[in-house]
Nucleic acid binder design. Structure first.
Lengths: 232, 232
DNA sequence: TGCCCTTAGTGAGTATGATTTACTTAATCC
DNA sequence: GGATTAAGTAAATCATACTCACTAAGGGCA
């Protein structure tokens, strides 16, 4: 005689609260297994509901992912504006942006990695809200560079878009081992190094030619002085 | 009366030839639909065989992808060594590397995009042959930078790894719209701009002021000496 | 010439996991 | 306290990578 099938009591929660549980579970399991390998069934179980219930809140698995990432991006955007307030000078502002971006990555490497690997490279990325958010985010740096050019602090032939790509692309490559869990990062050091590289470049300054002329001239002057002193 | 089921004649090809057909089909369809959306069934049909036959040559769909990309990478690596031959000076060599990398991307944007989106961000990337190939590829630049530091052409405090990440990461971001089919790229202009940025930085050189003052002062001193010499 | 053996190739599955459908029932509002 | 809304479910459906057990082409060799 088999026991009557015990159905566990169905617990109902208000929409916002349940969504929060689902998103926590999703974040945890996306982190643990990666987006593709994370199972909707496992997310549902972790959130205390059935698989089908997920689709009451999100149109599909990818929509759930985007919801997580939109929240993250909006927070980062707020941080940018807040931290830049009162900072003067293109170079200082660039450094703050780099530092702040690194800090956001350090705080949420799981979300950052999902963004890099699952969102940005999808065929329809340019139609998503995340693309729009990312554009606004990187625009902050572009504007700083343009202002710096206008003020004369930055070279007039600087391409602001190239600076944006070099900084955000450079950071992405630089933090990849950290995102893969293979190393840690030192935000202060990394932001200093990157800011210096972008601002000064890597070549030893070739004031060379001016310097040669200056030196030659100085030698001649010195010789004459020596000659006079001896002769006098 | 239904006609007897006509089975099309099975065409057999030597292993290498069939693999070539499969890889052509795979490349075409990965490009057309993206890796995930490309169907093994469609690849098989395009290559003129059944689905199951694919698995005689590749252990799975991902293995097929990696085979395509390994070939591409090996070709790029050869190009690097060839084109660098006879080029002197860190800055010139860096520029050649940037130019050559852009050219490889321009020639095979489909493969490049697959590499960025489907390979590099996978959890097991570090265990793949492609990781090893990529390491060898980027090492060429790292060695050039190190040599440039040793020769005094590059600043002694330059981080070669940072330069590598800024260049390859910057390029990746810079070419993304092109890879998505939304723009074209000008290899010559892009390589010049990027090389200049990395080598000189974006700040207006401010050794300028000191140097100008120094030079002016020396000129005045020299003039006075000249004047005295003439007058005496 | 005819047999053997290697291997290209196949048809018919299996397994897995996202999404849909049709339904149930708790909470809330008048 | 009945109607309405919305949270939730069980059980299908569907798509697709991959496996299994098998067939047969064709080159080498007695």
């Amino acid at each position: 005689m088999s026991p009557s099938p015990e159905k566990r009591a169905v617990v109902r929660l208000p929409r916002a609260e349940r969504m929060h549980q689902i998103e926590s579970a999703a974040r945890k399991l996306f982190h643990k297994h990666g987006y593709t390998a994370a199972r909707i069934s496992e997310i549902a179980a972790d959130a205390g509901i059935s698989e089908a219930a997920i689709y009451k809140f999100y149109s599909n698995k990818r929509d759930l992912l985007h919801t997580l990432l939109k929240d993250w991006y909006m927070g980062m955007l707020d941080d940018f504006y807040e931290k830049l307030e009162g900072v003067e000078g293109a170079r200082n502002r660039i450094k703050v942006i780099i530092w702040q971006h690194l800090k956001s990555i350090r705080e949420c490497p799981d979300l950052c990695r999902l963004f890099y690997s699952e969102v940005r490279s999808m065929p329809d990325y340019y139609d998503t809200e995340l693309y729009e958010l990312n554009r606004r985010y990187t625009l902050v740096l572009v504007d700083v560079v343009k202002t710096g050019i206008a003020s004369g602090e930055l070279r007039p032939d600087t391409s602001s878009a190239l600076v944006r790509d070099v900084i955000f692309g450079g950071i992405e490559h630089r933090v990849t081992p950290f995102l893969m869990g293979r190393s840690d990062i030192d935000i202060d050091e990394m932001s200093s190094q990157l800011c210096d590289l972008v601002c000064q470049g890597i070549c030893t300054p070739d004031a060379g030619q001016d310097m040669d002329r200056l030196m030659a001239r100085l030698e001649r002057v010195a010789d004459r002085l020596d000659g006079k002193a001896k002769g006098g």
